[in-house]
Nucleic acid binder design. Sequence first.
DNA 1: GCAAAAGTGTTAGGAGTACACCCATGC
DNA 2: GCATGGGTGTACTCCTAACACTTTTGC
Lengths: 219, 219
Amino acid sequence: MEIHNMKYKNQGIHVIASIFTIEKGVLKILLIKRKNEPFKNCWALVGGALYNDEDLEDGLNREIYEKTGLKNVEVRLSSVFGKKDRSPVMRMVAISYIGMVNINEVKILKDTLKTSNAAWFSIDDVPFLAYDHNDIIKDAMKKLKESILTTDILKVFFPDGFTLPELQKVYECILDEKLDRRNFRKKILNTNQIVLTEEKQAFEGKKKAKIYRFKEESE
Amino acid sequence: MEIHNMKYKNQGIHVIASIFTIEKGVLKILLIKRKNEPFKNCWALVGGALYNDEDLEDGLNREIYEKTGLKNVEVRLSSVFGKKDRSPVMRMVAISYIGMVNINEVKILKDTLKTSNAAWFSIDDVPFLAYDHNDIIKDAMKKLKESILTTDILKVFFPDGFTLPELQKVYECILDEKLDRRNFRKKILNTNQIVLTEEKQAFEGKKKAKIYRFKEESE
DNA sequence: GCAAAAGTGTTAGGAGTACACCCATGC
DNA sequence: GCATGGGTGTACTCCTAACACTTTTGC
């Protein structure tokens, strides 16, 4: 590869995050309003161009921080988008990630150097977005549904443990379907990913529910 | 993003394929010997730098063709490798794919503009490779194992159909474990991905085996 | 007729699904 | 005491895994 060959010039990498949360039983995604061209004033996913001197996930976390004020969002690779004309400015390949945050623990910045607004949108109510970000969200949703049972991606929602009714609500919200209470308990307990604690806590009912927590990696 | 900012200059995208085949019951991977720096004379996966004016998979297929003479290899996304120092020349992010080819139907070029050799290596016998290609293979192997049951990625091995003993050999070879004949048949037939044909054919035994084929997408 | 591989069936355990009743608590 | 949600068990089906015998055919 000849570094000065025009065939390779002006390529860049977008690192993009579909950041989800759940607020009052509704799955939401974090969007920002762009302040600059291209797609000025258009809503978009959080993300931007990777620097030369940072690893992919570090770049993504920097972008998330710069555009929303959020720090240390845990992210997982979702997919790659590389159509040659997906950016009107120059050739950009997008690496897309999924992130989950606890809405009670974060405060997003509405106005930054490059964004004029930031807001949570219900997943059923996403507007037309910059670039191919609508496609990216679609793919991220699919991956999210696949990974909730097999990974501990939901851990961030429950830093202090959770009751099974709570967890079930989150599942129902992400999968967008009702689940049977008894079968849900069996399934979750069978994955061997969670353990019972001593505590109890009221959730929606009057009766107190048992609190569980995700196992640590070592357990 | 300011296009002339040094933070974004000299970035590129590697498109890389772990091309597998099965030869005499052994899983093999296609490697090429590099003719140029960096990693001159080192073995490496097939792939190279993406051009500005081509989609990701088109670029990958071009690289495969240039370096091995193979055309139209069907590929699937595997993962992404983006450590900042993974290339000594400039910042390169690698998009890695899995490809399968039928060794009876291809002839690879041993010598091209950029390669001085190309050869199939048993998966247990892969040498030290250029860049982070050893890591990329490891990941591709994991993805390959996950996808053989749920996708028709093995179709290319059997353009004219296959017998179940044949297919089982391929599974055993990729998963690196022995499978029970009766349970294998049940499992495969249950996936509803294959259909019985009228023909029969001898494989390893004297008795002729029934020939199946993968369903078309429309079936 | 025998060696070598192809083909088949049964049983037991585990997971998924559907479904109904009692328990604890706040009001 | 009753409404609300939390907690539990059972029966059926389906998938998985373990396991042994018969069939075909080339030699």
